[in-house]
Structure formats: C-alpha cells, structure tokens
Design a binder for these strands. Structure first.
Lengths: 222, 222
DNA sequence: GTCTATAGAACGATAGAC
DNA sequence: GTCTATCGTTCTATAGAC
C-alpha cells in the first residue's frame, strides 16, 4: 500500500506533507483521511491539526510546495527558449517542452521515477473540491497567460479562439495522459511503457505540437 | 445547488439513478453520499440500499446505463464510416468523430446542453476508487481494441507504439478537455464558449487528428 | 416498497496532561 | 510539540413497523 518509507529523522511537519502527497495522489481529497496520512507519516493523529490547522490547509500547503517549483522551472525554460530564439517567435515545440518537461523532472526523485507524482498533479487539476479548483485556477491562470503570450507570437495566423481552445486541449491532454499513464501499458498489452518517462514526454510534445497546427475547422455534420 | 428537478411520477429507482448521476459528476465517488443522493432524488434514505444493495452498486449501475449506449453509438458510427469508405482505410477524422461525437449527443438532453454530463464521463475515468477504474477499463478496453484496428489500417506507416501512445493521448485529451470545459471560458476570458458544443467537438477532432500525425519523435534533450 | 429509527464505524477536530 | 482520550458529526447499512 505504502510507497517508499519516509526516512527517520525527518521532522513531523515534513513527514505529514510527504505522506499527504502520496495519499492524496492515490485517493483524491475526499478519499484522503487524516488518519491515513498520520498513519503513513508515522506521527500522532493530533499533529496534523496542530501543525496545519485543518485537513484542507494541509493539502493546500502540500500542493503549493509541489506546484510552485514546477511553475518556476517552466518560466525559466520558457525564458531560456526565448533567448535561444533571439527574442523572435519561439518554436512551438520549445514552448510545449517548457510547459511539459518540468513535470518529468519533478517526477524523477532520488529513488528513480515516481509515477505517482504525475498522478498527484493530474488529480489536483480534476479535483471536485471547490476550494482546490479555485486555488489551482489561480496558480495556473498566470502561467497560462504568460505561455499564451509566446504561443500567440509563434502562431500569428491563428485566431484567439483557436489558440485558447488548443491550449485547453493541450493542457488537459498533458495532465490526463501523464496522470493516467499506467493505462497505456494495459491498453497496449505492454507495448508502451510508462516508465520510459523521456519517451513518453517527447511523444506528448510531438503530439501536441501537431495538434496545435489545427485551426478553426470547417463546420462538420455527423 | 441542484440542477433540473427530477419530474414527478418517475419511480424511485429511476430517481435515484438520475440523482446519483448529478452528485457523482459533481463530487466524485468518495464525495458522493447516499444522503445527498436520496435528498436530491426526494426519496427515503433507506431506499438506496433497498434498490441497489450498496452505494457502490448504485454508482456502478448508473455508470453502466450511461456508458453502454454511448459505446453502442460509437460502434455504430464507426461501422457507418467503414461502409462510407467502402471497407478501405477510414479517414482518421471520421474515426475520431465516431469516438467523440456520441459524447456530445449524450450531453444534449431535452433541456438543452447538459455540460455536467461531460463532467460525469470524465470523472468516471479519473476516479481514484479502485473498483471503478477496473470496471471502466473493462468497458473501454474492448472499444479501444476495435478503434485501434481501424486506426491501424488508416496509419500504416506508424509503429504499434506510436499508435497506442497517440490513442492514449487522444482519449485523455478528449475526456479531460470535455469534462473540464468550463475552464476554457475562464482561461480565455470568455472568448471560448463551452456551451457551443459543436464548435468544441469539431475543434477537438481537428486537434487530435493533427496530433495523430505525430510519429516516433527523434530523441530530444532539455 | 416505503418509512422510522438506529446500529456501528469512521470522520475532523480539540481539550488537556505531559 | 507530542501524546491520549474523546466530543460531536456524519457516514453506510440494516432491522423492523406499516
């Protein structure tokens, strides 16, 4: 059930955050109980409320600490790509790489690839809990604006609606495909391996870059 | 909070299924309580267990009744496209339309477009609950095999790994984008309208058809 | 089939000793 | 900061009257 045990010597607050990450990623917010978190963290039940005040605050803090560095890395890579393009339009592939690759980096811990982390990120986006959607929207909205600025410069022929729809499809394809990456193994009878993180991410970038070429389609009847 | 009231005269079992659909779509399995379902259905709390035996059985039955007709329609459209192509390779757009458009049809009830239904379908795929993933995999695996057969014939140049990865991306983009379609409105400041179901689905088909052109990408370092 | 009532377990949160 | 103990709530599920 548990993944890798949290090392001894880690203090209670940190143990709680790490345990919450695993449980929340596996069971979602409503399915996460403080009893399960404190058991996995091997700390007292009361310590969760002592350190964070509430279940909601614990999960929020966990999410914030995890998402913030990823977004920073995304902006760093985007900036790097901008300079590489000598401040002209950035190739679409490079923009998508800046968006996607930091997820791979964050999933690669010292104990090898941690696919459950991708599940965590995906779940945080599709959570039914209202407060979580609000926070995640806030996190993501700024980032989306910045990325959209570069995408717009790289696709001058597309309309605003084209661009936003395609970005919407790309974001959801990214989060869904990565968080559900175990399914592709079952579906393909093992032909595809989710553990090949680089292969997966490169394929995803290629798929989305192609998808982004789609513009307003002609009306279609089925 | 509630959507459209369930009409009078509907029998208890049906009322429960309809109410479960709304609540589950909005709050997920763990967040769905029989109290909320029976309250929305305006029936007695005990009736849920009387008619279905358990919360799990109720949600399963609701899902089964909803997903089965959609999959039938998908196969019907695929067959129609096959005949239209005179049993040669089907254009990729037509295959994707057969996969996607039935979701739009199912979301269009007599009371206009019901976007919460798309949320329900998306949620059923990303549910953390183990039993639900198992069932959904079963539902979907057969369908994926059939569709993959046609996709394979339409993309003879692609490797098996290419095809399965791209199908994986397409399925997740479809479910994620549709179930989270409200976000695109917020993100784009109203430029994109999720209520324009046809526009959304046509754009999605175009995006995914382009994405599918992507094959094994060259190794890439970031 | 539909109700009331409640069993029995799990939940988040907290009071208060150490 | 960490514990035990427990409060008050909510949950699924069921027993039993009608």
């Amino acid at each position: 059930m548990s993944t890798v045990a949290i090392p001894r010597g880690t203090d209670t607050k940190e143990r709680l955050l790490r345990a919450a990450e695993g449980i929340f990623g596996r069971h979602g917010y409503a399915g996460t109980t403080l009893r399960a978190v404190t058991a996995e963290a091997e700390v007292n039940l009361a310590s969760a409320n002592y350190h964070f005040g509430s279940k909601e605050a614990l999960v929020m803090e966990m999410l914030r600490q995890r998402v913030a560095p990823i977004n920073e890395e995304r902006l760093r890579l985007l900036d790097e790509a901008k300079r590489k393009a000598e401040f002209g339009p950035i190739p679409l592939e490079d923009i998508l790489e800046a968006l996607i690759m930091p997820l791979g980096g964050a999933a690669r811990g010292q104990d090898g690839t941690d696919l459950s982390f991708l599940q965590l990120v995906g779940r945080s986006f599709s959570e039914p809990a209202e407060f979580m959607r609000r926070v995640h929207d806030t996190f993501f909205r700024e980032l989306a604006e910045v990325f959209m600025g570069e995408i717009r410069r790289s696709c001058p022929q597309a309309t605003e609606a084209d661009l936003w729809w395609n970005l919407h499809f790309a974001i959801n394809a990214m989060l869904g495909s990565l968080s559900q990456c175990r399914r592709v193994e079952a579906m393909s009878n093992g032909i595809c391996e989710a553990a090949d993180l680089d292969g997966m991410l490169n394929r995803l970038v290629a798929f989305l870059a192609n998808g982004f070429q789609a513009n307003t389609p002609p009306s279609r009847t089925v």
